[in-house]
Design a protein around this nucleic acid. Structure first.
Lengths: 218, 218
DNA sequence: ACCTGAACACCGTTCAAGT
DNA sequence: ACCTGAACACCGTTCAAGT
């Protein structure tokens, strides 16, 4: 019964894995069907036998990363702890695969986004938020997460793939400092904080702010 | 002194205006240099004399819409009222030009994004948030806005440009209802609310949630 | 200084032809 | 059933040549 399903022979899984590897290595622009088929030592059109088109391939790659990220075994089982764990899991996954952030923020109601929304919604319910307010509360958390994801991806895109986080923030802080203090007083004032803040901590502070707002409403 | 600067003769402004019109009419994919040069009755390469490349053109188009959107003359001068006015102005602008949402969510620290951040930051300061927390508070608001912008743009992208908001939400609600209730209890439960909720109200509810969280912290 | 338009180096996708 | 690879219909961008 051992039909060929190993090293050789194309498969959807092999294609998705290769796509993820290429996206990780070279970012958004690195994934082309030509480069992909070269890497897989096959013809350009062969991929279309297993995958409908590039858009579906990107969705599959994104969903694969998300499925991994959402497989949390968080010790803290309180709804608040669960929500924080979901958010952190996503942040770390996007930090490791910045292209996922871009994908997420431009894909509405794709499988992956719906999964995230469901997970958050369940915990919002567990939090004791009244039925009529759960939809808004969960949406706020989701949109905040997706916005942060998009910015994270955008930051990774402008700098070359290897840039360290410190250099990245430093460069941004330098831009802010160079702005006219009269028209940009706020950016000028917080430029220092921008230079050496912790992205992850900042991200979680936003989650906590929304959670506080949800609690304050009752 | 009347050198030719009217109907004929290309200019950066005419190019940006034409680009905005094309993006409004056909969405993200409709803007190509070929179609643009046809519309402007000029050669493909002529545009490059006034604009560095497509990316710069998109930024200029986005910034033009944002500048308009941020020119608010809100009566309510309280910091909270100002923040709400900024958010609403952006929501309406993106609702009218969905491609701006996509642009915003994939452009970090472009001129437009910085302007928004500055405006929000100033009001966060006026709100009386301690200096050390202003950066996080303003970031949370910004990321939420950008996330909502991206989802808005994504929703517009999947359906054809003419689709009414009711049809759009109805289609989405139908998808949620069709999901397995065992694995997607939350989505199933809120599908009805999804079907007939008010996007604008939902968006502002998120802003209010974050503002409540900011106040609750003190 | 500004514009033309052919040419270059790419894309995603299709499809007859092979095995 | 699965794969090949040439071909098609596009892109953004460049650049010699024009005015």
């Amino acid at each position: 019964m051992a039909t060929r399903t190993g090293q050789d022979g194309l498969s959807r899984e092999r294609i998705v894995d290769a796509a993820i590897a290429m996206l990780d290595e070279g970012g958004d622009g690195a994934l082309t069907f030509r480069a992909l088929s070269t890497r897989l030592k096959t013809g350009a059109g062969a991929i279309y036998w297993h995958v409908a088109n590039k858009s579906e391939l990107l969705s599959a790659a994104t969903d694969a990363i998300l499925a991994e990220a959402l497989r949390s075994d968080e010790a803290d089982t309180s709804p608040r702890g669960q929500i924080r764990a979901i958010a952190l899991g996503l942040f770390d996954a996007i930090d490791e695969h910045p292209w996922v952030g871009g994908q997420l923020s431009r894909l509405a109601s794709q499988a992956g986004t719906l999964q995230i929304f469901e997970r958050i919604g369940q915990q919002v319910e567990a939090l004791g938020v009244p039925a009529g307010e759960q939809f808004y509360a969960a949406s706020a958390l989701l949109n905040y997460i997706l916005g942060s994801a998009g910015q994270n991806a955008a930051n990774a895109r402008v700098h070359e793939p290897g840039t360290s986080r410190a250099d990245l923030l430093g460069a941004e802080a330098a831009v802010w400092t160079s702005l006219d203090p009269a028209t940009f007083p706020f950016l000028h004032r917080v430029a220092r904080q921008m230079g050496d803040h912790d992205d992850r901590e900042q991200f979680m502070a936003g989650i906590d702010l929304i959670l506080a707002g949800i609690s304050a409403g009752r």
